[in-house]
Amino acid sequence: MREYNIKIENVVASTQIGENIDLNKIAKEVKDAEYKPKQFPGLVLRTKEPKAAALVFRSGKVVCTGSKSVEDARRAVKQVVKIIKSLGIKVFDEPDVKVQNIVASADLGVDLNLNAIAIGLGLENIEYEPEQFPGLVYRLDNPRVVVLIFGSGKMVVTGGKEPEDAKRAVERISEELTALGLM
């Protein structure tokens, strides 16, 4: 088995931590909080360890972005809950965190001929417009992810829900390309 240098770059998770959260109060009390209701209705809270950003909305929904693993995302959410709780705002203790998107990068380690790949994988399955974007877009059904393949052999896998998705996708593509003799 070859190493593809798969690295999770970003995990986006969402959860519900309460209802009718007073964002103004958080903005006033927490000095790192960013809240500009004119520009964006959510309040941005950044955590240092793990490094992540949480968008808190008035409805009580929280979106956590920027963390490098699912575990980090959960920890970040916990921290945010703790901060908000300490301000005396009513929140749920054990919010159910759901992963929405995982972005990973990978490297096949060889230069690719995207033109040949475009034809090999079938023009109806892929999207390759070098005039608009240098990468080739390949949408997989199983796992349901979108992969951007670049001429350098590097790839970006987005849209996965499990950390395993990225690995499966990369392995499948590698298999397909090997079968086509393009790797």
């Binding site: 033109n115 005039e131 670049f150």
Partner: peptide, 13 residues
């Protein structure tokens, strides 16, 4: 250039 795969991922224009 196409034979040597120099055009892959490069804008055609």
């Amino acid at each position: 250039a196409e034979e040597k795969e120099l055009t892959s991922g490069r804008g055609p224009t």
